[in-house]
Design a protein around this nucleic acid. Sequence first.
DNA 1: ATAAATTTTTAGACTAGACTAAAAATAGTT
DNA 2: AACTATTTTTAGTCTAGTCTAAAAATTTAT
Lengths: 217, 217
Amino acid sequence: MTRAEENYLKALYHLSDHNDAMVSTTELADRLETKPSSATDMLQKLHEKSLVAYTKYKGAKLSSEGRKKASQIVRKHRLWEVFLVDKLNFGWEEVHEIAEQLEHIKSPELVERLDEFLGCPTTDPHGDPIPDQKGHVVTISKSLLADQPVESSTILMGIKDSDADFLTYLSQKGIKLGSCITVLEKEPFDQSMTIEIDGQTLFISKTLSTNIYVQTL
Amino acid sequence: MTRAEENYLKALYHLSDHNDAMVSTTELADRLETKPSSATDMLQKLHEKSLVAYTKYKGAKLSSEGRKKASQIVRKHRLWEVFLVDKLNFGWEEVHEIAEQLEHIKSPELVERLDEFLGCPTTDPHGDPIPDQKGHVVTISKSLLADQPVESSTILMGIKDSDADFLTYLSQKGIKLGSCITVLEKEPFDQSMTIEIDGQTLFISKTLSTNIYVQTL
DNA sequence: ATAAATTTTTAGACTAGACTAAAAATAGTT
DNA sequence: AACTATTTTTAGTCTAGTCTAAAAATTTAT
Ligand SMILES: [Mn+2]
Ligand SMILES: [Mn+2]
Ligand SMILES: [Mn+2]
Ligand SMILES: [Mn+2]
């Protein structure tokens, strides 16, 4: 499998959002910052290889074999992210780009040894679950901070959009995985919130609260 | 820089053997398991980029810029080998293939953090020196075991041909970096030797003794 | 110094992956 | 239902990197 093939499989994995929904060529092309015609080419190739179920004009989804391959890439990506943050002290906003390369290293043995070295983590630095060798993920029920009622106490479990600027902003405010968040106020007209996070009071926009996953205590 | 370009630069680095000797296209092609015509193509390209000094029919050698790039790849290769052996407990015969991939990961920050994480090692698991950020290597004077006189006591400092089968064989015999070797006997007709290594007596062929670097005590 | 053998380069073809432009299919609108 | 707008596919082109076969240069041998 080439790097390009792997990137397409991974994109399909993320876009189908676990409910093996059909993905259109434009969605796929947008995600990979390429053109729909290129996506069509690749989908036809991956269909030939039985990694993708693709029907002209109707979109594509991963085959079970394709999903397994994709989950292995995601597994590697997230394990390397843990390595970079836990062992090399990178910030969570710096690791995605590097993991994007490391995920393509081919060595099953390496993955398992890395996993063990890291203490078999179940989530990556952004709160996303790490698939096991078989591609299974333990899904932790989490809800959006935006949907929490006033007075509720929660713990920050994940970031929806792991954009580097967004992650940097969160770090600056001292917002990180495991932070305790209590909703103090919610403005009905623009859904902005006043929250207490690890003791300090913060005012946050709707954009922010819809990109943060929390777990109710 | 593409992966292929990097592999060509690295091959030139190793073949020119520090004395910036001219390297022929066939040598280069053999090393990279490709054809001379492919090597010619790439040399012309790298010459265009001023990374290689190449003159038709006369061979090629690295420019100072090219040598610097090459040394950075070698640096990465060897640092990753240290990581794999020291942190992930791989055997020294297993790491070359994986490092061959890892050496192409692009992130200067990663290299420096990895270096620090590993305690800034100066040699890799096969006894080869790790170039610093500027491409400088600390050359430790070592000689071939084959050239040692009878009765001399030495320490194993490196392996010349890091072929996986050879490394596995050495491990099986308990031969590793740092082992104390005393030459007990030398047969004049075929240069085979009887040695004492870490207490045990071993009979070794010329092939073996010409692939082991030692330092005299 | 010529001729033969070897090495090196060129020319032409191939694949993976991407792109543009045009054609075909689908979806949306009157 | 027919027309329009959008999406998707096809056709053709491009680059990187490889290969084979042929041509050119160099080296070796006579
Ligand atoms: Mn990737
Ligand atoms: Mn992540
Ligand atoms: Mn390599
Ligand atoms: Mn090595």
